[in-house]
Amino acid sequence: MDSNSPLLATQGTLTGIGVGPGDPDLITLKALKCLQAADVVAFPRGRSGQPGLAETIIAPHLGQQQLLPLDFPYSFDPDRLTRAWQQAGDRIWQCLVQGRDVVFACEGDLSFYGTFNYLALTLEQRYSTATIRRIPGICSPMAAVSALGLPLTMQSDKLVVLPALYAVDDLDAALAWADVVVLLKVGSVYSQVWQLLHQRHLLAHSWVVVNATQPTQTVYRPLTPYPHLDLPYFSLMVIRSGANPLP
């Protein structure tokens, strides 16, 4: 399409903003300004009719913008996921071609396993003239260690982040060389992880943070008395396995 096309002259911009881990005050000033200036605010629709986390975070900052909840299935089916991304991209494109600026709110940081990555890629593939910007945010490991009052890394610490753990052997391999390991979505494998940490004498240097920075934030430290925990989705474990673990 010609760069002088009337469509491009009036086309809106899609901006992805990382809105942080839960506390509405942790959204950056740049993201806040963009959010409040947008014509349309999009976000993942929550489950069972309840607001999703991103929607909850931005709610105190919204004015009269049009709200655009988008449906993203909790599924590993590639065909189902592709259809959802395409439908979401098409809905946003219809706003952009009307000259309306759209903000997509993503919890945490956009680049850190963020939903926005898939949406932006789909939009770029289907509509090559789309203009897309990104504004970073605070991701969950940073929020978790702040709640713990600990640094995430120091000096030459080697860091590993495992977004989902399907085999405890993966953690065992990471612990063999990393000084700090962060496990996201640890709830489904917590008991197996606890046993491994017990064998490696690391329970006193491992911590779990649930719903970091949110009103329901809960911290488990040390993990020695907690061989079994029923943890929700937004649960994160930090393990310091280096030669000189923090107290």
Rank of each mutant, 00 (worst) to 15 (best):
A120V: 01
V102R: 02
G18V: 11
A54E: 03
H228C: 13
Y190P: 03
L14H: 03
D172F: 01
A37F: 02
I132F: 12
A176Y: 00
V181R: 12
G187A: 05
I135T: 00
S191G: 10
T218Y: 15
C139Y: 05
V208C: 11
V103P: 04
R126L: 08
P6A: 00
D23A: 06
Q64A: 15
N211E: 13
L246F: 05
Q11Y: 12
K30E: 03
T131P: 04
T15W: 11
L62H: 12
D230P: 04
G114P: 07
G187W: 05
L70Y: 07
L229E: 04
F72K: 03
Q125C: 13
T28L: 07
Y74A: 13
R240Y: 15
Y113D: 04
L236S: 00
L121K: 14
A176H: 05
G108E: 02
V145P: 10
S241T: 04
L202A: 01
A164D: 14
H205S: 14
M142R: 09
R221M: 11
P21M: 03
L35N: 09
Y220W: 04
A164Y: 15
D170N: 15
Q66G: 00
L35C: 05
A174P: 03
L223Q: 01
T218W: 14
K30S: 03
D172Q: 14
I27S: 04
A147L: 12
P73T: 01
V97L: 04
G16P: 02
I135Q: 08
Q195V: 05
A176M: 06
S5V: 03
T82D: 10
A105I: 04
R83S: 14
Y113T: 04
W93C: 01
P215C: 06
V182C: 11
P232K: 05
T115K: 02
S3C: 09
L67V: 01
P6G: 05
V238I: 11
R221S: 15
Q11N: 13
A176R: 00
R100N: 12
C139V: 10
